[in-house]
């Protein structure tokens, strides 16, 4: 579905990503794991074109993409809006909802045409997935709780009918009961056949939803393995993940 190869990225003169390669299969949840500063968020942003990659390729395969222009072609170096239109949906870590806009207006900003072969997302379908949003359609997003904002930001991205979702730390800063509901929502999306690249610090959360794990350290992928294997391997976790 998604194939990233040899991705490099810089912030100014600081070299952050040193050749990140990963693949996400159709319908799979790949977890990007690593300590703070390992390059998880930057990988997401580089794939999305928000931090222009200095080298490497990003390919989104399969199905017919909008207009077919970017099908199977390298997305690296394209502007973010073209990458979003090609079928990548980005959910930022900082949420970045439009606080002055209502819930419905936030969803409207994310709305893109339906993709052939995929049931298009509508506000009503999203309110079924995130019931708490349905009760506050006309509320300014600035007056919502952190958990509600996190759900809104995912719902907003889904309105673009993405083929693959980039989820950057969706559990960060949420109450345990909200984290549980978030995990349920992600599993529901996976059941719909959506592919997901998920970056996480919360290992329990990642273990509950992930199929495979890709471990990053200082901007380099160290190991990619099935999630259950990682959960069994305490030594590996201690080496790359524990603080």
């Amino acid at each position: 579905m998604l194939a990233v190869e040899g991705l490099h990225a810089h912030y100014g003169r600081a070299h952050i990503l040193h050749g990140v390669s990963l693949t996400v299969a159709a319908g799979e949840v790949l977890c990007l794991l690593g300590r703070n500063g390992a390059g998880k968020s930057t990988t997401m942003k580089a794939i999305m074109g928000l931090v222009p990659p200095s080298a490497g390729t990003v390919r989104l395969e399969g199905g017919r993409l909008e207009g077919g222009r970017l099908e199977g072609r390298d997305l690296a170096g394209q502007p973010p809006h073209a990458i979003a239109r090609a079928g990548l949906g980005y959910v930022p870590e900082e949420r970045r909802i439009f606080t002055g806009l209502t819930v419905l207006e936030n969803l409207e900003v994310g709305r893109r045409p339906a993709r052939p072969g995929l049931a298009p997302w509508t506000p009503e379908r999203l309110f079924a997935l995130f019931p708490s949003l349905g009760g506050m359609r006309h509320r300014p997003a600035g007056r919502m709780s952190g958990g509600e904002q996190q759900m809104l930001t995912i719902a907003r991205t889904l309105m673009g009918n993405p083929r693959l979702l980039l989820l950057d730390e969706p559990s960060e800063g949420l109450a345990p009961v909200v984290v549980e509901r978030m995990a349920e929502a992600i599993l529901a999306l996976k059941a719909e056949g959506l592919s997901i690249l998920l970056s996480e610090q919360n290992l329990a959360f990642a273990g509950a939803v992930g199929d495979r794990a890709c471990i990053l350290e200082t901007g380099t992928p160290r190991q990619t393995l099935p999630m259950p294997a990682l959960m069994r391997d305490a030594a590996l976790r201690a080496r790359y993940l524990s603080v």
Partner: peptide, 21 residues
């Protein structure tokens, strides 16, 4: 108009949602 208001707050996010700035 809604896109304009959204872009007023965070234009990078608007473009990440597929809107040509």
């Amino acid at each position: 108009g809604i896109l304009l208001r959204a872009a007023t707050q965070d234009r990078e996010m608007v473009s990440a949602l597929g809107v040509d700035q």
